[in-house]
Amino acid sequence: MESIALKGTGKTPTVNFNAEEGLIEIKGRSIPENSIEFYKPLVDWLDKYAATPASKTTVKIQLEYFNTSSSKCILDVFKKLEAVQRSTESVLINWYYEEDDEDMLEAGEDYQSILKIPFKMIEIIDEDN
């Protein structure tokens, strides 16, 4: 399967999906007006990946900002990963949030409460402070 590598913009995140390595990474800002347009190819890719997943899938979500329009799309991404988890039982979602960003931690917990996939909440400590 071909990988997806997208460079982030002011409104859309950096994306690295690598089927061979079982790496799913979304990082940066996700605040486009039309999130469905951006996420559809990613969800389609995951749909295919779910058919023949790697033995272990590592998911890294490190978002600085995301809008409510993206929140549903990110849930769609996770739902595809939930299917992978059902068949392999080896998916871990690493949810990164910046120090003191309680809203982002809470957003991760929202997904955790809806999904049947293990989450690991990881606080990023800014060493400049």
Partner: peptide, 23 residues
């Protein structure tokens, strides 16, 4: 409010504009 947000997020019924009234 947090509970309502989770319920709407987990619900499939989102509008075509994508927000589902979550904004």
């Amino acid at each position: 409010l947090k509970e309502l947000y989770r319920i709407i997020l987990g619900n499939e019924e989102f509008s075509e504009k994508g927000g589902g009234g979550l904004g």
